[in-house]
């Protein structure tokens, strides 16, 4: 019995808790991608680097606060800096829209032209971030680190295995829930939110109804900026901030958006968790877990790891390909790319 409990604690500690936090981060990222796709009708490749940009500004403001001794202990100072990061990113995205995308909208360019120009935007943003904060790892988490420490957990329960829950993980989940509720309330209940859904559903009829496309587009960028900055900051608090990692996040985020059904916000959330749990369960080494559950003579010698963590992006990629082959509309019937 204790063996089974120990196995479960082990699993929760290394799979359940981290994958839930990671899933929430991906879900927030995928929501941004899916909204931009629904309204502006293109896959925004710059979203990962938008996250990096927002997080960078948040980090810089965090450092500034830290140098002044401003703190909201036990919570990380970054939460206080987050609104500034969001504001800067909103400015950045609106400027990008003005300088790049608006022109292509005016000439009614094909979606692929938008995608390619977003690749350009991605490189520029990537360059700006590296130029300002450098390509290296940055740590900016402060405040209390753990809600439950493994050692305390062991002492309290008398189990051999410990469970760790980090503040960043709990924060991620809590903030993600609040953000998602706020977003859905906005989309379902407000006049502006409904007009965005109408625009996404049927652009011509929306124009006929007097819905202003420029306003809808502007609000979409503002929301995308907020989502990207929040997702990026939470990811950075949970792990660490490195511009290249954020660029790489693009793949799991797109996989999440497409698995759920691109253009469908509910799908983006489901997709985020599907991708996160697949990635973590497939790259987890089950040796110790199985040792608790199996009789001694069946104990595995190898790590029982399906895929090395170095290949974790392969998981997203396989999910992406499978979904596009088998069910291109995704779980929640989004649009087909």
């Amino acid at each position: 019995m204790t063996d089974i409990l120990n196995a479960l604690i082990l699993f929760a500690n290394f799979v359940l808790v981290p994958a839930t936090a990671y899933g929430a981060q991906l879900a927030l990222g995928a929501l941004g991608v899916t909204l931009v796709f629904g309204i502006l009708r293109f896959s925004n490749f710059a979203h990962g680097d938008t996250m990096a940009f927002g997080t960078m500004v948040t980090i810089l403001v965090t450092w500034w606060f830290q140098s002044m001794g401003v703190s909201i202990h036990p919570l990380p100072t970054a939460l206080l800096a987050l609104p500034f990061g969001i504001l800067a990113t909103v400015g950045m995205l609106l400027a990008t829209d003005r300088l790049v995308y608006r022109f292509y909208r005016k000439v009614k360019a094909a979606p692929i032209v938008f995608v390619m120009s977003s690749v350009g935007v991605m490189f520029v943003m990537n360059g700006i971030v590296r130029f300002i904060i450098g390509p290296d790892d940055q740590r900016f988490a402060d405040g209390e680190r753990f809600i439950i420490k493994a050692r305390d957990f062991k002492a309290a329960t008398g189990m051999a295995e410990g469970l760790t829950i980090k503040v960043s993980q709990a924060l991620t989940l809590g903030i993600a829930v609040i953000v998602v509720i706020a977003l859905f309330w906005f989309l379902q209940r407000t006049r502006t939110g409904k007009s965005m859904r109408a625009f996404s559903d049927n652009e011509d009829l929306a124009l006929l109804s007097g819905i202003s496309p420029e306003r809808v587009v502007m609000i979409t960028w503002i929301i995308a900026a907020a989502l990207a900055t929040i997702a990026g900051t939470l990811y950075g608090l949970d792990k660490s901030f490195k511009p290249f990692t954020y660029f790489q996040l693009l793949l799991p985020i797109f996989a999440a958006a497409i698995v759920g059904g691109i253009g469908n916000p509910l799908g983006a959330i489901a997709g985020g968790f599907v991708v996160a749990f697949s990635e973590v369960t497939i790259t987890y080494a089950y040796k110790k877990f199985l040792r608790y559950l199996l009789p001694e003579n069946l104990e595995p010698d190898s790590l029982v790891q399906l895929l090395s963590t170095d290949y974790k992006f392969a998981v997203s990629f396989v999910i992406l390909v499978m979904v596009l082959l088998i069910r291109p509309t995704g779980i929640f019937k989004g649009k087909v790319l």
Partner: peptide
């Protein structure tokens, strides 16, 4: 063709008609 917002409810369709 395409004269309703298919993913919106009937009432939301009417609300969007009154958007201006």
């Amino acid at each position: 063709t395409n004269n309703v917002f298919t993913s919106l409810t009937v009432q939301e369709n009417l609300e969007m008609g009154a958007y201006i």
